[in-house]
């Protein structure tokens, strides 16, 4: 474990917490005659969170962490896996099933089809993998799918234009997590023998590049001290 990996995991964890905080805020303010200002903003507009992306992440973690019962790596590893599995499925549950949270979800804007991402990733994982076994193919599938799972969210952000603060932070933290993982791989490449993993690296690089555009607008909005807005 190096500092880049740890920082990457922590930003990933923070992104999940930001999302859970957002859901908690929506939940706790509903029904009050004087909602807090944050909640007022969240309830006024749609939540800006893509259910499609969240469902894809749940699928990513479910297929990647199949080894949770078979291979023990560390207590840290197991706990983090449980957190990511638990949080991704409960976020999906909240957006689909919770009476109030569901209402803040704008279904008509979030139109991306899972199928278009899942099928190519599955085919690619069947063709290009490190080992043709059930677990390894699903692991590879999860890498490919994670690389593109943010697309519905990015498209939704571009459509809604009006990005609330928490949603902006959420996407930024996810992007930071990916960028830090690349630094982690570079570090491991130079410090560990035989550490070459083209599949992980290329899909990780593709994933990070998808955030490039968002990062550009995120940082320029910080620099100019204006609200984050993506161009149409």
């Amino acid at each position: 474990m190096n500092i880049f990996r740890l920082a990457g995991d922590m930003t990933h964890l923070m992104s999940v917490l930001v999302l859970l905080l957002k859901i908690h805020t929506i939940k706790s303010c509903a029904g009050k005659s004087y909602p807090c200002s944050l909640c007022f903003i969240l309830l006024e507009s749609s939540s800006g969170i893509s259910l499609k992306t969240q469902e894809l992440y749940a699928l990513v973690f479910a297929t990647r962490y199949l080894d949770i019962f078979t291979d023990f790596i560390s207590v840290y590893n197991t706990i983090m896996k449980l957190i990511f599995l638990g949080s991704s499925f409960s976020i999906v549950w909240y957006i689909r099933r919770h009476k109030i949270v569901r209402r803040s979800y704008d279904k008509d804007q979030d139109t991306f089809r899972h199928f278009f991402l899942v099928l190519p990733c599955l085919l690619l994982a069947l063709i290009i993998n490190e080992k043709f076994t059930f677990k390894e193919v699903l692991w590879t599938f999860s890498l490919y799918l994670e690389a593109v799972a943010i697309l519905p969210q990015l498209i939704l952000l571009q459509r809604t234009r009006n990005i609330d603060n928490l949603t902006g932070q959420y996407v930024f933290l996810l992007g930071a997590y990916r960028a830090l993982y690349i630094l982690n791989w570079i570090y491991r490449y130079f410090t560990e023998p035989h550490y070459v993993h083209w599949i992980t690296w290329i899909s990780g690089l593709v994933q990070t590049l998808l955030y490039a555009d968002f990062f550009y607008y995120y940082f320029s909005s910080l620099k100019n001290n204006v609200k984050l807005k993506l161009p149409a």
């Binding site: 590893n77 983090m80 490190e130 993982y181 560990e192 992980t200």
Partner: peptide, 10 residues
Amino acid sequence: KNQPSTHDEL
């Protein structure tokens, strides 16, 4: 131990 070592990542 032939397991690819990215498997210790999340």
